[in-house]
């Protein structure tokens, strides 16, 4: 049969149609709501735009300022990287550990699962951030407990430059729920007979974990890693609320997205903020590319033949 255009199309639909149908809700949202503003922000990143008057073309000036002169941006990048590099591995470790505990047939496991997931449901919300600010404040619950147990009067954790970022990292780790659920699903996929065979051969629990669980879970770990890294780079609400919108003290919680927001909506530099947004996209893309690039050395897919 000659391969006609319509034939190719119908074969394409046969193969991919269902996939595109599932993608449709997202696709409509992307094309209808996100795409336009995204393209507009790319244009705006080459302009001076203060919201009140029309944008004026300024070429590469915004990017030049970001790369060469903006000291606060350098600080914001450092804060954000510190946050990502600490919070993502720790969060994944906690999520995996709890998933493995819950994977055993404990009584009432669904109750625990729901309970552990709860912080993630509330996690990025304003209410939790407000709660965090109270908990770790000078007269907060954490310091009251600390004083009762040790007699030490703790600092105001959220507003001390040495500790403020750490409290945000703890907040991020506490929201381990969604990677935990994904890990749980992954663990269910690991064939039990592998463990049985391993214990017959006398392999210890730790060895089983390293040689069976980790390799078979690698695709799920990879998925969680990429997702959580992107999330962490975009973190905003926590820092905004916990620092009272200032990124303080002394800019120690000035996340990239918080700085971007401040430039756009407080300093009315919408053009410059657009440039910052595109730089963030590039940074995230580089990290994701590194993850994908190295994945072939450590991620093993079961349907792959090697």
């Amino acid at each position: 049969m000659p391969s006609t255009a319509s034939g190719r199309l119908s074969r394409f639909w046969q193969k991919n149609g269902a996939g595109y149908m599932f993608l449709l809700p997202w696709l409509i949202g992307f094309l209808g709501l996100t795409l336009g503003p995204t393209l507009a922000s790319f244009y705006l990143s080459f302009t001076d735009y203060d919201l009140l008057t029309s944008p004026r073309w300024s070429g590469l000036k915004n990017y030049e300022y970001a790369f060469l002169y903006d000291r606060r941006l350098g600080n914001a990048i450092e804060v954000t990287f510190t946050y990502v590099l600490w919070s993502v591995p720790l969060k994944l470790a906690v999520a995996l550990g709890l998933a493995m505990v819950l994977d055993r047939s404990v009584r009432g496991v669904s109750f625990y699962r729901a309970t552990f997931y709860l912080p993630s449901l509330l996690g990025a919300s304003v209410a939790i951030a407000v709660l965090w600010r109270q908990l770790f404040g000078a007269d907060g619950l954490v310091n009251q407990l600390l004083f009762m147990v040790t007699g030490i009067q703790g600092p105001a954790w959220v507003t001390h430059p040495d500790y403020a970022l750490s409290t945000l990292i703890v907040l991020a780790i506490w929201q381990f729920g969604s990677p935990m659920i994904i890990f749980l699903a992954g663990l269910r996929q690991v064939p039990q007979d592998l463990y049985e065979a391993a214990s017959m051969d006398g392999a210890s629990g730790w060895r089983q974990f390293r040689k069976i669980t980790l390799p078979l879970l690698a695709p799920v770990i990879f998925f969680n890693l990429v997702l959580q890294t992107i999330e962490a780079f975009k973190a905003f609400t926590q820092a905004y609320i916990v620092s009272g919108g200032t990124g303080g003290p002394v800019d120690s919680t000035l996340f990239y997205s918080l700085y971007l927001y401040e430039e756009a909506f407080a300093n009315f530099r919408m053009g410059y903020a657009s440039a910052l947004a595109w730089l963030l996209l590039v940074i995230i893309a580089i990290f994701t590319a590194i993850a994908f690039g190295t994945s072939k050395y450590w991620v093993y897919y079961e349907d792959e033949s090697r």
Binding site: A138, P155, A156, T159, H160, G244, G245, T246, G248, P249
Partner: peptide
């Protein structure tokens, strides 16, 4: 002290 004062983010109730 600085950390206590920094808790005032400008809101009246702080």
């Amino acid at each position: 002290p600085a950390d206590l004062q920094a808790q005032d983010s400008g809101k009246m109730e702080e």
